[in-house]
Computed example of a mutant assay.
Amino acid sequence: MSIGNSPSDDRPSVGRALAKARIEAGLSVDEVSTRTRVRVPILQGIEQDDFSRCGGDVYARGHIRSIARAVGLDPEPLIAQYAAEQGSPETPAPVPPLYEAERRIRAEPRRPNWTAAMIAAIVAVIGFVGYTVVSGSGGDDKTSAGATPSATTTTPTPSQSPQGNGEPKPPQPSNSAIAAAPPGKVTVKVTAAGGTSWIQAMDGNGKQLFQASLHKGDSKTWTDDKKIKLIVGNAGAVQLFVNGKDLGPAGDKGQVVRLTYTPGDPTQG
């Protein structure tokens, strides 16, 4: 995206209007960045009518709306002016401000993934029953010649079915062990299953591990001793796998979310 078109003589551009309102409100760029969670380089570019760092029209509109509210302006006329200057129509579902997305995440805790837990429990029970039956049948093979065989037959369970060498077939591993993390570490895998999403990932020391857009079908995995922090744009398009747990979509379509994960079960906290 290039720098915006030249404004008319009687009306300042979007960036100049935001910069003027900020100065009149007595706020610095850093203070507005803290209030809106818009990074300083992006905010400085917007005040100069350079929206190339926003990552697209949807994000640019969201940033304009957040900054306008922070400096005391009505965001809607600025959004309309941005659309006119950039030659892009207003989208029906703009990205909500980042602080609203965070508040919604805190208010709606993610439910535990009971399906994965039940599958793991069923596999464990089947394996235990199969081992008990096989290990207990060793003394029953020596049946006396005159003994009458029982009329009742038992169909072996999948874990008791013999392999080619006569040994019982071991239970199959559970599909819930996705992106499993080593003990004491946190492992996060993101997959752009439903479309394109912008991702930023940082480790427990604040070091940036990744910042770019993932296109549909792309995946990224990160591991750290302490924590993994994520900022996810278009959260409904992203599937999350944390410490061996499938957490489903990161949020709703068009939503921007901030997430933090640590070692342990992500569904228990």
Rank of each mutant, 00 (worst) to 15 (best):
G87L: 02
W114R: 14
P170T: 15
S161C: 14
R106S: 07
A70Y: 03
V14L: 00
A181W: 01
T153V: 04
E85R: 02
Q172S: 13
K216Q: 15
D50A: 04
R258G: 07
G206I: 12
T267E: 07
L73C: 08
S135E: 14
L230Y: 02
P12T: 08
N113E: 05
R53G: 03
Q208A: 08
K185E: 11
L78E: 01
V71P: 00
N234H: 11
Q44S: 13
D252K: 10
N165E: 06
R22E: 00
R39C: 12
T191E: 09
N205M: 14
S88F: 04
G254V: 12
E31N: 07
K169Y: 02
D10Q: 11
V58G: 01
G217P: 07
G166D: 09
I105C: 08
V40T: 15
W222I: 15
P158G: 06
P149Y: 10
F241V: 03
V129C: 01
S6G: 12
H63E: 03
A180T: 15
G15C: 06
L214H: 04
A70K: 00
H63A: 07
E85L: 14
K185Y: 11
A84K: 00
T187A: 14
P41A: 06
G248W: 12
P266N: 13
G26R: 08
I231S: 06
T115H: 08
A116M: 13
I79Y: 00
T196I: 15
V186A: 00
P92N: 10
P109M: 06
S174L: 07
G264K: 11
A179Q: 02
P156T: 12
S13P: 00
S135Q: 15
K185T: 11
D225N: 09
P173R: 09
T262P: 05
E90C: 09
G244Y: 02
P109Y: 11
N243F: 12
A120E: 12
D57G: 06
T196H: 11
G166L: 11
Q86P: 07
S135M: 14
I79T: 03
E47P: 07
G248I: 05
V242M: 03
D49G: 02
P89R: 01
T34C: 10
